[in-house]
Protein backbone atom coordinates (compact mmCIF):
# COMPACT_ATOMS: atom_id res chain seq x y z
CA UNK A 1 0.00 0.00 0.00
CA UNK A 2 1.15 3.47 -0.53
CA UNK A 3 0.82 6.79 1.12
CA UNK A 4 -2.38 8.77 1.44
CA UNK A 5 -3.40 11.68 3.56
CA UNK A 6 -6.20 13.19 5.52
CA UNK A 7 -6.47 16.82 6.51
CA UNK A 8 -8.62 17.03 9.60
CA UNK A 9 -10.21 20.22 10.90
CA UNK A 10 -7.45 22.58 9.79
CA UNK A 11 -7.58 26.18 11.05
CA UNK A 12 -5.06 28.74 9.93
CA UNK A 13 -4.96 32.47 10.26
CA UNK A 14 -2.36 35.12 9.61
CA UNK A 15 -2.61 38.00 12.03
CA UNK A 16 -6.36 38.57 12.11
CA UNK A 17 -7.02 37.04 8.73
CA UNK A 18 -8.65 33.65 9.13
CA UNK A 19 -7.68 31.79 5.95
CA UNK A 20 -8.70 28.22 6.70
CA UNK A 21 -11.49 27.27 9.05
CA UNK A 22 -12.19 23.66 9.95
CA UNK A 23 -10.93 22.53 6.59
CA UNK A 24 -10.94 18.77 6.06
CA UNK A 25 -10.52 16.32 3.21
CA UNK A 26 -9.43 12.70 2.80
CA UNK A 27 -7.22 12.11 -0.20
CA UNK A 28 -7.54 8.37 0.03
CA UNK A 29 -7.57 7.35 -3.61
CA UNK A 30 -4.79 7.68 -6.12
CA UNK A 31 -5.41 10.23 -8.79
CA UNK A 32 -5.43 13.89 -9.55
CA UNK A 33 -7.13 16.23 -7.13
CA UNK A 34 -7.47 19.78 -8.32
CA UNK A 35 -8.21 22.46 -5.78
CA UNK A 36 -9.83 25.57 -7.20
CA UNK A 37 -11.08 28.81 -5.76
CA UNK A 38 -10.69 32.54 -6.13
CA UNK A 39 -7.36 34.26 -5.62
CA UNK A 40 -6.46 34.55 -1.96
CA UNK A 41 -8.96 31.95 -0.74
CA UNK A 42 -6.20 29.90 0.88
CA UNK A 43 -5.26 27.24 -1.71
CA UNK A 44 -1.51 27.72 -1.36
CA UNK A 45 -1.81 27.87 2.41
CA UNK A 46 -3.71 24.59 2.46
CA UNK A 47 -1.10 22.97 0.23
CA UNK A 48 1.82 24.14 2.35
CA UNK A 49 0.13 22.80 5.46
CA UNK A 50 -0.61 19.45 3.80
CA UNK A 51 3.00 19.25 2.60
CA UNK A 52 4.13 19.74 6.22
CA UNK A 53 5.93 22.98 5.43
CA UNK A 54 3.76 25.00 7.77
CA UNK A 55 1.84 24.08 10.92
CA UNK A 56 -1.88 24.66 11.24
CA UNK A 57 -3.23 26.57 14.25
CA UNK A 58 -5.63 23.74 14.87
CA UNK A 59 -6.34 20.31 13.38
CA UNK A 60 -3.85 17.90 11.88
CA UNK A 61 -2.53 16.41 8.69
CA UNK A 62 -2.40 12.65 8.92
CA UNK A 63 -0.36 10.49 6.59
CA UNK A 64 -1.32 6.85 6.36
CA UNK A 65 0.59 3.91 4.97
CA UNK A 66 -2.48 1.92 4.03
CA UNK A 67 -4.32 1.85 7.33
CA UNK A 68 -1.31 2.50 9.56
CA UNK A 69 -0.01 5.87 10.59
CA UNK A 70 3.09 6.64 8.51
CA UNK A 71 6.33 7.36 10.38
CA UNK A 72 6.79 11.10 10.50
CA UNK A 73 9.74 13.45 10.33
CA UNK A 74 12.38 13.35 7.64
CA UNK A 75 11.38 9.93 6.31
CA UNK A 76 7.89 11.17 5.59
CA UNK A 77 9.13 14.49 4.19
CA UNK A 78 11.16 12.52 1.67
CA UNK A 79 8.12 10.67 0.33
CA UNK A 80 6.19 13.82 -0.56
CA UNK A 81 7.09 17.02 -2.35
CA UNK A 82 5.66 20.36 -3.36
CA UNK A 83 6.40 22.28 -6.53
CA UNK A 84 6.10 26.00 -5.97
CA UNK A 85 4.57 28.48 -8.42
CA UNK A 86 8.00 30.12 -8.60
CA UNK A 87 10.40 27.48 -9.92
CA UNK A 88 13.19 28.23 -7.44
CA UNK A 89 15.92 26.60 -9.50
CA UNK A 90 19.50 26.32 -8.32
CA UNK A 91 22.36 28.11 -10.08
CA UNK A 92 23.65 24.94 -11.73
CA UNK A 93 22.99 22.90 -14.85
CA UNK A 94 19.54 21.52 -15.60
CA UNK A 95 20.63 17.94 -14.95
CA UNK A 96 22.26 18.84 -11.62
CA UNK A 97 19.05 20.58 -10.63
CA UNK A 98 17.10 17.47 -11.49
CA UNK A 99 19.43 15.09 -9.67
CA UNK A 100 19.47 17.26 -6.53
CA UNK A 101 16.86 15.20 -4.71
CA UNK A 102 18.88 12.06 -5.42
CA UNK A 103 22.17 13.57 -4.25
CA UNK A 104 20.76 14.61 -0.89
CA UNK A 105 19.39 11.09 -0.49
CA UNK A 106 22.83 9.63 -1.08
CA UNK A 107 21.91 8.18 -4.47
CA UNK A 108 24.71 8.60 -6.99
CA UNK A 109 26.47 7.03 -9.96
CA UNK A 110 24.63 4.88 -12.42
CA UNK A 111 21.28 4.88 -10.65
CA UNK A 112 21.29 8.66 -10.32
CA UNK A 113 22.22 9.12 -13.98
CA UNK A 114 19.59 6.70 -15.22
CA UNK A 115 16.81 8.20 -13.15
CA UNK A 116 17.81 11.76 -14.05
CA UNK A 117 17.99 10.97 -17.76
CA UNK A 118 14.66 9.23 -17.78
CA UNK A 119 12.91 12.13 -16.01
CA UNK A 120 14.58 14.62 -18.35
CA UNK A 121 13.19 12.69 -21.25
CA UNK A 122 9.75 12.42 -19.65
CA UNK A 123 9.61 16.20 -19.24
CA UNK A 124 11.09 16.91 -22.68
CA UNK A 125 14.28 18.49 -21.35
CA UNK A 126 16.96 16.08 -22.56
CA UNK A 127 18.39 18.61 -25.01
CA UNK A 128 18.72 21.21 -22.24
CA UNK A 129 20.46 19.03 -19.69
CA UNK A 130 23.82 20.84 -19.70
CA UNK A 131 22.43 24.35 -19.83
CA UNK A 132 22.51 26.52 -16.69
CA UNK A 133 19.00 26.38 -15.26
CA UNK A 134 18.84 30.12 -14.62
CA UNK A 135 19.09 30.83 -18.33
CA UNK A 136 15.91 28.92 -19.25
CA UNK A 137 12.60 30.41 -20.31
CA UNK A 138 9.94 30.45 -17.61
CA UNK A 139 8.11 27.53 -19.21
CA UNK A 140 11.23 25.41 -19.33
CA UNK A 141 12.10 26.46 -15.78
CA UNK A 142 8.72 25.26 -14.55
CA UNK A 143 9.31 21.93 -16.29
CA UNK A 144 12.70 21.59 -14.59
CA UNK A 145 10.95 22.24 -11.28
CA UNK A 146 8.55 19.39 -12.16
CA UNK A 147 11.39 17.12 -13.20
CA UNK A 148 13.30 17.86 -10.00
CA UNK A 149 10.25 16.75 -8.02
CA UNK A 150 9.47 13.70 -10.15
CA UNK A 151 12.96 12.24 -9.94
CA UNK A 152 12.45 11.45 -6.26
CA UNK A 153 9.33 9.46 -7.16
CA UNK A 154 7.09 11.12 -4.60
CA UNK A 155 4.05 9.23 -3.44
CA UNK A 156 2.18 12.48 -2.94
CA UNK A 157 2.99 15.36 -5.28
CA UNK A 158 1.69 18.85 -4.54
CA UNK A 159 1.63 21.30 -7.41
CA UNK A 160 0.84 24.91 -6.57
CA UNK A 161 -0.39 26.72 -9.68
CA UNK A 162 2.03 24.82 -11.92
CA UNK A 163 1.01 26.73 -15.03
CA UNK A 164 0.18 30.16 -13.60
CA UNK A 165 3.08 32.03 -15.18
CA UNK A 166 3.69 30.19 -18.46
CA UNK A 167 2.45 30.13 -22.02
CA UNK A 168 -0.06 27.79 -23.69
CA UNK A 169 2.49 25.45 -25.18
CA UNK A 170 4.28 24.82 -21.89
CA UNK A 171 0.95 24.61 -20.09
CA UNK A 172 0.00 21.85 -22.53
CA UNK A 173 3.26 20.02 -21.88
CA UNK A 174 2.81 20.23 -18.11
CA UNK A 175 -0.81 19.09 -18.27
CA UNK A 176 0.38 16.17 -20.36
CA UNK A 177 2.96 15.23 -17.74
CA UNK A 178 0.25 15.29 -15.10
CA UNK A 179 -2.03 13.11 -17.20
CA UNK A 180 0.76 10.60 -17.76
CA UNK A 181 1.37 10.47 -14.02
CA UNK A 182 -2.28 9.59 -13.67
CA UNK A 183 -1.84 6.67 -16.07
CA UNK A 184 1.18 5.38 -14.20
CA UNK A 185 -0.98 5.45 -11.10
CA UNK A 186 1.79 5.56 -8.53
CA UNK A 187 1.39 9.13 -7.38
CA UNK A 188 -1.38 11.09 -5.77
CA UNK A 189 -1.32 14.57 -7.28
CA UNK A 190 -2.87 17.44 -5.39
CA UNK A 191 -2.71 20.65 -7.37
CA UNK A 192 -4.19 24.10 -7.24
CA UNK A 193 -5.32 26.28 -10.08
CA UNK A 194 -7.60 29.25 -10.41
CA UNK A 195 -8.41 28.06 -13.94
CA UNK A 196 -11.60 26.00 -13.76
CA UNK A 197 -11.29 24.82 -17.33
CA UNK A 198 -7.84 23.43 -16.65
CA UNK A 199 -9.21 21.79 -13.52
CA UNK A 200 -11.79 19.93 -15.58
CA UNK A 201 -9.17 18.90 -18.15
CA UNK A 202 -6.84 17.11 -15.76
CA UNK A 203 -8.74 16.28 -12.60
CA UNK A 204 -10.18 13.03 -11.35
CA UNK A 205 -11.76 15.14 -8.71
CA UNK A 206 -12.27 18.89 -8.63
CA UNK A 207 -12.45 20.47 -5.20
CA UNK A 208 -13.54 23.99 -4.38
CA UNK A 209 -12.08 25.98 -1.51
CA UNK A 210 -14.48 28.62 -0.28
CA UNK A 211 -14.94 30.35 3.07
CA UNK A 212 -11.94 28.54 4.51
CA UNK A 213 -13.35 25.09 3.74
CA UNK A 214 -13.28 22.54 0.98
CA UNK A 215 -16.91 22.45 -0.08
CA UNK A 216 -17.08 19.79 -2.77
Amino acid sequence: MSLNLQAVGIDKSYDNNQVLQDCSWSFTEHGIYVLTGVNGCGKSTFLRICALLERPDKGEVRYLDGVHEAPDGMTLMRRITLVLPKAGLFNMSVSRNVSYGLRIRGISGRESNDRTDSVLEFTGLSHKKDQNALTLSSGEAQRVAMARALVIEPEVLFLDEPTASIDEKNTGIIENIILQLKQRGQTTVIMTTHDRVQAERVADRVLLLEGGKIVE
Binding site: L84, G88, F90, G101, R105, I152
Partner: peptide, 13 residues
Amino acid sequence: PVIRYAATTLGAT
Protein backbone atom coordinates in the same frame (compact mmCIF):
# COMPACT_ATOMS: atom_id res chain seq x y z
CA PRO B 1 14.31 32.62 0.06
CA VAL B 2 12.63 30.35 -2.49
CA ILE B 3 15.86 28.30 -2.51
CA ARG B 4 15.33 27.35 1.12
CA TYR B 5 11.78 26.32 0.31
CA ALA B 6 12.81 24.35 -2.76
CA ALA B 7 15.54 22.44 -0.94
CA THR B 8 13.21 21.65 1.95
CA THR B 9 10.44 20.35 -0.26
CA LEU B 10 12.91 18.15 -2.11
CA GLY B 11 13.77 16.41 1.14
CA ALA B 12 16.91 18.18 2.30
CA THR B 13 17.81 17.97 5.99
